[in-house]
């Protein structure tokens, strides 16, 4: 009896040691790789005082980078939300040949290195690219210009909304929609009154992640941008330039904006997760 009790106590204490070791390593991992860098960004940014910090953010080149980043996101996010809705609808509500193929294609932006993605666009739309002569004839500039940045960003952020919606829509099936049709709803009424309310939290979640990536994308944008100051620099590219010029305070000040964006995204994401249940 007694020895059994002792061995059980022993087992329990081993279990609790395991527990604390696991929790401890997870927390220290998070601390080293996430918390410390985050703090470093802000301390570096504010090292030379608040005044310099705001100066770095308000100088014309920084402002133009912020503006371009916002414009890019403002185009890429709504388009990908629309594409995402259409693609998720097609995949979950219809049976068609090549459906599995389409699901695989959707993942390509996640699977391919962003740099490769950028290069592909250069090969397509660049001066020596497939469509190069055609674009030149009409005097349209895509690579090393804003359209290229927008296209690359759309490509990179395409999967976020679709990926979020497919499982939700699959789980819900189409019975509610069919019920709406039997009650006399038109296709649009069905979408607006039945489908959309059921997936709205999923859409919002996808949009938040899509936006975070659209504003933060570096690799693909870096290849197609050409780094023209005040013209084709997004915020992440601007950070890189400042850093390469040993302008650390300004670089970290701009980086801190991206960090704030990340924190804000996490905050929104948590709220949406809670609200969506």
């Amino acid at each position: 009896m007694k020895s059994e009790l002792v061995s059980r106590q022993k087992k329990q204490s081993t279990a609790s040691i395991t527990k604390w070791v696991l929790i401890g390593s997870a927390l220290s991992f998070l601390g080293i790789f996430i918390l410390v860098p985050l703090i470093a960004v802000f301390t570096e940014a504010l090292k030379k005082g608040v005044e310099l910090y705001f100066l770095a953010l308000t100088e014309p080149e920084a402002l133009s980078a912020i503006k371009l980043t916002m414009i890019t996101a403002a185009i890429a996010v709504p388009l990908n939300t629309l594409f995402g809705l259409i693609a998720a609808w097609a995949i979950t509500k219809f049976e068609f040949k090549g459906k599995n193929m389409l699901i695989t294609l959707i993942d390509i932006p996640f699977a391919v290195s962003p740099v490769i993605a950028g290069l592909v666009f250069v090969l397509l739309f660049g001066a020596q690219g497939v469509f190069g002569p055609l674009l030149a004839a009409y005097n349209i500039k895509i690579i090393f210009a804003v359209p290229g940045i927008v296209i690359a960003t759309i490509f990179i952020t395409f999967p976020f909304v679709v990926r979020e919606l497919i499982p939700i829509m699959q789980e819900q099936g189409s019975e509610e929609e069919l019920a709406a049709l039997t009650l006399g709803a038109s296709g649009w009424q069905m979408f607006r009154k039945v489908t959309l309310p059921n997936i709205k939290w999923g859409v919002l979640y996808g949009v938040i992640l899509c936006n975070a990536r659209a504003m933060g994308e570096f690799g693909a944008v870096s290849v197609v941008s050409g780094h023209i100051r005040g013209l084709t620099n997004t915020l992440p590219l601007h950070v890189e330039i400042l850093y390469n010029e040993y302008n650390f305070t300004a670089a970290f000040a701009c980086a801190s904006l991206l960090a704030i964006l990340a924190l804000f995204t996490l905050f929104l994401k948590t709220i949406v997760e809670k609200a969506g249940g």
Partner: peptide, 29 residues
């Protein structure tokens, strides 16, 4: 089309609109 046939259909698992009240469900049509 489904709409033109004007049939009442009750689904096996009811297919009620989850996000609407009972009142709004019934008033939908």
């Amino acid at each position: 089309s489904v709409k033109e046939r004007k049939v009442g259909f009750v689904f096996q698992h009811y297919a009620l609109f989850k996000h609407m009240t009972i009142f709004d469900n019934i008033a939908f049509g």
